[in-house]
């Protein structure tokens, strides 16, 4: 489960940057994108782990892509049927989950490896998915509060702030800034933890 923090796909591995930037205009958008990706991650990890002995080495990448695309189509249809507003808000980024590098990376680096069984692959997908969801929700919440002055649609900083919010953070440029600053923050925090650990070791 180290996908949640130590190997967080967004802030530590910097994978799947397109949906991270595009869908984090609000908390609910970021969160639902995270959940949709998590579903695809777990599903494709499980199926690929089950099929890995039958997939010839040379055509494994196209085979993985077909499995992933199948799960993405399922997500697309379910969202269109039950969450039409979200489906319209996320738009082209739902089919684009297919080319989210996190999913192919986990298939290649974890689920497709002979030493990892089905359960371990499912847990790996779940961990990475949770990490991705947390990252997107954090960025979505930040951009919604600063950019529109609301959280989940309600003006938590008062109507006055919502009317005069720092709109730049709701624009694409704000997405880049937020991601860049969050990355720097995570670098700083992990650096501090590392140096503390080192200091403790040397102290012992």
């Amino acid at each position: 489960m180290h996908g949640i923090i130590a190997e967080n796909p967004t802030f530590r591995l910097v994978l799947g940057t397109c949906p991270t930037l595009a869908t984090t205009i609000s908390l609910i958008n970021g969160f639902s994108m995270g959940i949709a990706t998590m579903f695809v991650l777990v599903g494709s990890n499980v199926v690929i782990s089950l099929l890995k002995n039958f997939i010839p080495e040379k055509v494994r990448i196209p085979a993985y892509i077909v499995v992933i695309a199948t799960f993405v189509s399922i997500v697309q249809m379910v969202m269109q049927a039950f969450f039409l507003d979200l489906y319209n808000a996320l738009g082209v980024f739902i089919p684009l989950i297919v080319v989210n590098c996190i999913i192919l990376a986990r298939a290649e680096a974890f689920a497709g490896k002979p030493e990892n069984n089905v359960l371990a692959s499912a847990v790996d997908g779940l961990g990475m998915g949770i990490g991705f969801t947390i990252a997107l929700s954090l960025m979505g919440a930040f951009r919604e509060i600063v950019g529109s002055g609301t959280l989940l649609g309600s003006p938590i900083l008062g109507e006055g702030f919502a009317a005069n919010a720092f709109k730049l953070f709701a624009t694409p440029a704000g997405g880049f800034f937020t991601f860049g600053l969050f990355l720097a923050l995570f670098n700083l925090v992990f650096d501090k933890i590392d140096s503390k650990r080192k200091a403790r070791k040397e102290g012992v």
């Binding site: 704000g174 860049g180 720097a184």
Partner: peptide, 15 residues
């Protein structure tokens, strides 16, 4: 600055 190097500063530039 050290912690901004790499992806971080590139993203801010892109912003």
């Amino acid at each position: 600055p050290k912690h901004l190097r790499g992806f971080s500063i590139s993203l801010i530039t892109a912003g």
